[in-house]
Computed example of a mutant assay.
Amino acid sequence: MPRVYATPADLTAWTGKAAPADAERQLARASEDVDSALLTAVYRTDADGMPTDPDVTAALRDAVCALVEYRAETGDSGTGARDQWDSVSLGPASMSGRRTTGGRPGGVDLGDRAERALRRAGLLPGVVC
Rank of each mutant, 00 (worst) to 15 (best):
V56P: 01
A72Y: 09
A28S: 15
S77P: 07
E24P: 06
S96L: 08
R29C: 07
A117P: 01
Q26N: 11
K17S: 10
C129W: 06
V34H: 08
R82M: 12
P105G: 02
T57N: 04
M95G: 13
G97F: 05
D48A: 15
A72I: 13
S87I: 08
V4M: 14
L60A: 04
E69V: 05
R104G: 00
P54R: 05
A13K: 13
R44T: 15
Y5R: 02
V108T: 02
A59T: 01
R3S: 13
R98M: 07
A9F: 10
R3G: 12
A121N: 04
V108Y: 00
M95Q: 11
A93M: 13
A41R: 06
R120H: 04
D112R: 04
D33Q: 11
V88Y: 12
A66Q: 06
P8G: 09
A81G: 12
G102C: 00
K17Q: 13
V64M: 07
G80W: 05
A47R: 15
R113P: 00
G102M: 00
L123Q: 03
V56K: 01
V68H: 08
G78K: 09
L90S: 14
D48P: 12
G122M: 05
D35V: 06
P2H: 11
G111Q: 03
A66M: 06
Y70H: 15
E32V: 03
Y5Q: 02
D33L: 06
R116V: 04
E73V: 12
D46W: 15
T45Q: 15
L90I: 15
L124W: 04
T57F: 00
T100E: 01
M50G: 10
P8T: 11
A66K: 02
L90C: 14
M95E: 13
R120F: 01
Y5E: 02
D33Y: 04
D76I: 05
A93N: 09
V64H: 03
A93L: 15
K17R: 13
D48Q: 15
R99G: 03
W14M: 02
A58S: 06
G16K: 07
L38S: 10
P54A: 04
T79P: 03
T40I: 13
Y43A: 11
G80H: 03
Q26Y: 08
D35Q: 12
A81I: 10
A72L: 15
G102Y: 04
A18W: 00
K17V: 03
D46V: 14
G107F: 00
A23W: 10
M50Y: 14
V64D: 05
G107I: 00
G102E: 09
G107L: 01
G80A: 05
W85Q: 07
L110C: 04
A114H: 02
A81Y: 08
C65Q: 09
S36T: 06
S87K: 11
P105A: 06
D35N: 13
D33T: 01
T12Q: 14
L38P: 10
E73L: 14
G122F: 04
R99M: 12
E69P: 04
G49Q: 14
T101W: 00
R25F: 11
D22I: 08
T74K: 14
R29P: 02
G107T: 00
T79M: 05
D112T: 03
V42N: 15
P105W: 01
L27G: 12
A28E: 15
P20D: 11
